[in-house]
Amino acid sequence: MPEIHEVATLTSKGQITLPKPIRQALGVDAGSKVAFDLRGGEVVVTRADAEHEDPAIGAFLSLLESDIRAGRHVASLPDELAQAMLANAGRAVNLDEEIAGDVAI
């Protein structure tokens, strides 16, 4: 996942609005659930996955993430495979849609 630094303001009710680049990177929108984990003085925000997540897709994404973090070359997925994965995740995405904001890779 790209490194993004954003600042949000805490309201008097203890609420924040996730900045748009963070929502886009996590793939969440209105009604989505996010998880907060406190790790060594830092709060890590992640998308709360559905209860019935496909373990094969999760394992594949973990493998892909480790390759990216290790700096290994990762080729583009065929469009058909990407669309099938997104369909299984229950999310409709237009792969030709422009990404709003800056993205660091």
Rank of each mutant, 00 (worst) to 15 (best):
V103F: 00
A104P: 11
M1C: 06
V28C: 10
D29R: 15
A70R: 14
T46L: 10
K33I: 09
I57P: 07
G71Q: 03
A8S: 05
L26M: 09
H73P: 13
A89D: 08
Q15H: 10
G27V: 05
K20Q: 13
G101Y: 01
G40C: 08
P55F: 02
L63K: 07
R72C: 13
D54T: 14
V28A: 06
S62A: 15
A48F: 01
A82S: 04
M1W: 04
M1K: 08
V28F: 07
L63G: 13
T9M: 10
A100G: 12
T11M: 00
L61R: 13
E80A: 15
G31E: 07
F60T: 12
N94R: 15
D96C: 06
A104M: 14
Q83Y: 00
D49C: 03
H5E: 14
I57F: 11
D79L: 08
A35G: 02
V93G: 05
A70C: 02
G14R: 05
G41N: 10
A50L: 10
I105L: 15
H52D: 15
A48I: 04
P55K: 06
V43D: 01
V93H: 02
A30C: 00
E65T: 10
L18W: 02
P2K: 01
V7T: 12
A8E: 01
A48M: 12
G101M: 02
L63C: 08
L61S: 02
T17G: 00
